[in-house]
Amino acid sequence: MVKKLMHQHNTKSISVKLHASLGQYKPIDADSLTFDMKISEEMTVLELLVLLSIPNEIIKMISLNDKLVKSTATLSDGDRLILFSTIAGG
């Protein structure tokens, strides 16, 4: 599913990277699987997933500024978020 980025009226901007099969959820106006987003105050990763129409159950790992976190983590200005779905290798 693709959708347009929601540009909101605030100053928080984060970098989002969608890994592998999550590419299907890339916003329609993003040039690549790594893109910048503006978000509202106090948004969690879980709320961002809703915004991107990504089902929570397919997210297996979340990296926020190089630390693995839960979906309840709160996003801050300048954060670098990477979302991983199933990898199934190894």
Binding site: K60, M61, T86, I87, A88, G89
Partner: peptide, 12 residues
């Protein structure tokens, strides 16, 4: 390393 996939594989 490959331990990265442990939680996801369990979930699947």
């Amino acid at each position: 390393g490959t331990p990265f996939v442990e939680i996801g594989c369990d979930s699947d």
